[in-house]
Design a protein around this nucleic acid. Structure first.
Lengths: 354, 354
DNA sequence: TTGAAAGCGCTAACAC
DNA sequence: GTGTTAGCGCTTTCAA
């Protein structure tokens, strides 16, 4: 703080008026204040370089105009764009963001406590869609505390939830490959872990989308066409090697690959390159996600772009609506669609040789 | 908030004691409180599900235990790791982070105002090293308000500043190339804009590092060996095309390239690939930065890894020290060194052909 | 049209 | 050991 904080009383004194009048003027509710008085007060405030103490205001108003953003890990690529979306709409509405990271269920619970102790007006949960326990969410809901959650497994329809249409994305990606003439289409999936804490709905939905599209066209989905890439660069790299080996052994190699996220796709491209498999001529690749470098991989990645920023915006909007209505409104489950962005990695079709 | 917030008075009443005793116990300063009373109070608090109102506490303590993090843009790749570093040490010390984004000088000034109105205890400025006006920083400094700035042009030695050793990085990268036997070494630089708002010290320092290393070995640094890649994927891609053209015209092509950041390097690799220039056989490439995908580009990128997380940690530590000392201490200018991470893109030396 | 005064929930002197 | 009380800086009745 500066030498000595200047308070509303200092301003009142300087302007020669009462504190309440200063308060009225500073809050714009000064219809009943004479122009002279107003000018006097404004001038005094300016001269003293007065900065209203929001903490004191929050204390009496019982509103802080801040919301808590709880994220599972700062490093996750989804975090920055989500925050960007959230920040943009919240700032417009005069809200602030308090950040809290919580990588495991316990610290999530404690983050909620801390944030509520800070008197945040609402909460946004941005997760990796891990299967965290939802007990504390349900408790929040019962207390009618405003919050919305992004990208998490939740079967409770009374809770505000923003999701991504992962199954649709898997289907669209695969359909694209099929339309290009491919019939042997493999997939590099996310972590198919049996550990309940690591299971993500998105992993299985994307995988199911692949199966559905295949089934709709009476195509096979044998297990030698799927490999677990764990959603990481390294995992994608290894999964391809595994897949090439598997398929070489059992039958013929796939001509196309649906890769369930963009990080794995980078690893996939490298493994394919090193194995001498040309993309897209020998192998078409379509991925999910749309990292800024998608157009600059070799070859440029065809992807289903994930509406991440939008997810943040929608979440923030939902929360703001709740907050300004002052009541919980009808809970919404919003599912955001992906969009196909065609680049180089699928080529012009199977029989055009690139 | 819940139905009705439970206050310290409720707890006191329930435990049949005075509020100050409750306060003492809850704050751990209860050496002089009898065990029975303590138990009583703790039990009452638990039963009532009491959650201390930090806002009220902040109000009387005149400390909020939150710091403001001002960033130029959420999308910037440096943002997430910096935040990660800051968050990690701040959380350990019981501090919270309020986020504010400010892409231009004006909104930075207003972000500072807003955050101070929120009574943050300190501020961390994380910028792209743009040449923002520093008037408001100087004002903060005069008021002895605690803050530290990361990665910004500042000649004021009385302000806490974390910088990266960009010149050293440029030099080390180039030295590495020279040690490998290269004598014609080009560079893809950041934006060499004349617009004062876009000029970044890092751009020129990295460039200077390149020149210095060259000069130290009596090598030429002709202008046809440098191209402006604007620090973007697309810019790197185009810059290489330009460079190849330039050098083809004037003399012989460089055998190595120092690329001033990792985003450009991705574009560079692609342009080189498309031009049929093999990396590292025909062209060695070393970049600055160390994105998670560095090991999975084709070929894997040799880089000078930027200590980004560390920058956040150091900044947070500096601020905490100031805060806990309660006085401004001697301002520090800390310069963080880069480290060479050798991968594939420089090969084994010029005359080994890869 | 304005000002005095009562809190918001908490901490910390200061009594007892 | 423990309770009473005076604020922290602000908003908001309520009375003038």
């Amino acid at each position: 703080m500066g030498r000595k904080a200047v308070t509303i009383r200092d301003v009142a004194q300087r302007a020669g008026v009462g504190v309440s009048t200063v308060s009225y003027v500073l809050n714009g509710r000064d219809d009943h204040v004479s122009t002279t008085t107003r000018e006097l007060i404004l001038a005094a405030a300016r001269e003293l370089n007065y900065r209203p103490n929001q903490i004191a205001r929050s204390m009496v108003r019982k509103k802080t105009a801040t919301i808590g953003l709880i994220i599972t890990e700062v490093q996750n690529p989804l975090f920055a764009p989500i925050t960007e979306g959230v920040e943009a709409v919240l700032r417009l509405e005069g809200y602030h963001i308090i950040l809290a990271s919580a990588g495991d269920p316990d610290s999530e619970v404690s983050a909620v406590e801390t944030l509520r102790a800070q008197q945040v007006d609402g909460l946004i949960f941005m997760s990796l869609s891990l299967r965290f326990p939802t007990g504390h969410l349900r408790k929040l809901h019962e207390e009618e505390f405003p919050f919305v959650v992004i990208n998490r497994d939740l079967d409770d329809s009374s809770i505000n939830l923003i999701q991504f249409d992962d199954r649709g994305a898997g289907r669209m990606a695969t359909e694209h490959l099929i339309a290009l003439g491919h019939t042997r289409i493999g997939t590099i999936s996310g972590p198919m872990s049996t550990d309940p804490l690591l299971r993500r709905r998105s992993t299985f939905d994307r995988y199911e989308g692949w199966r559905e599209a295949l089934a709709a066209h009476h195509l096979q989905a044998p297990s030698d066409l799927v490999a677990d890439g764990g959603y990481t660069y390294a995992g994608g790299y290894c999964a391809v090697q595994q897949l090439l080996e598997q398929s070489a052994r059992s039958s013929e190699r796939p001509t196309a690959l649906f890769v369930a996220n963009d990080m794995m796709a980078v690893g996939v491209l490298k493994a394919l390159y090193e194995a001498g498999v040309r993309v897209p001529q020998d192998m078409a690749v379509v991925a999910i996600g749309d990292p800024p470098f998608a157009a600059y991989t070799i070859p440029a990645l065809t992807t289903l772009v994930m509406p991440i920023v939008e997810a943040g915006q929608v979440a923030a909007r939902l929360l703001i609506d709740w907050l300004s209505a002052g009541k919980p409104a009808q809970a919404q489950h919003i599912t955001l669609k992906f969009a196909l962005q065609i680049r180089e990695s699928c080529g012009a079709g199977l029989h055009n040789d690139g």
